[in-house]
Structures are given as structure tokens and as C-alpha cells.
Design a binder for these strands. Sequence first.
DNA 1: TCAGTGACTGTTT
DNA 2: AAAACAGCCACTG
Length: 107
Amino acid sequence: MVSFAEKVYEVVRKIPKGKVSSYGAIARCIGSGRSSRMVGWVLNHSGMAEPPVPAHRVVNRNGLLSGKHHFPGENLMQSLLENEGIKINDNQVQDFDKVFWDPMQNL
DNA sequence: TCAGTGACTGTTT
DNA sequence: AAAACAGCCACTG
């Protein structure tokens, strides 16, 4: 049995460059569709995970960078996403539907 | 042990 | 349409 956190890490690490996913999608992919809070909680600890997890590619269902304030620095999350070709406007992912990556689609 | 909180989401008022 | 409520599970005081 792989722990909840392990699954979260695994899924998030599968998010291709230039794409993003949502907490709900990940939670649903794992099983507990309404445990999206736990996904956030796990990602909060992802900083000390090995190997590192691209938590900046995980946003809420509106494409809003809800976790931005948890990254070191003011706009590190936004910078990382923009560095991968994702455009951010007002803490929100532009063309969210186009850059959205569904974990179920890859599994 | 109880109550409050959190990187969320879906349903009901 | 906007706001409130309810589920979810782990952690902290």
C-alpha cells in the first residue's frame, strides 16, 4: 500500500512541462475525490520530498495559484510556470483549459 | 479530547 | 449569480 503522499508525489511528478493540474483531479485520481485539502497538505511538505516535486504545476480548479504564497519569495511559483511557457495573469493561469493536464488521461 | 485551521471542491440556499 | 454549508483528513494548541 502506497501512502497518500507517495501517490500525490508520483502523480505530480508525471505532470509534463508546460502543463498544470488541479488538486481535485489528483485527489480524484488517487481515490478520495474530496480529499483535495490533503493534496495541498502533502504538497506543502513536498519541499523536503525526494526527489523534488514540481508543486508549482498544481493549482486549484480555477487555475488560480492558491499556493503561491507558500513558495519562498513573492512570485517564485509564477516565475517557474512562466519559465515553462505557462502564462500567468493576476495569479491565474491563462488558457487553463489548454495547459490543464488530467492525471487520469495519462494513467 | 475538543476545537480550529488549511496549497480544495461540490452542493445547496 | 453570489454566498453559505458541508465533506474531506491530518496537524497543532
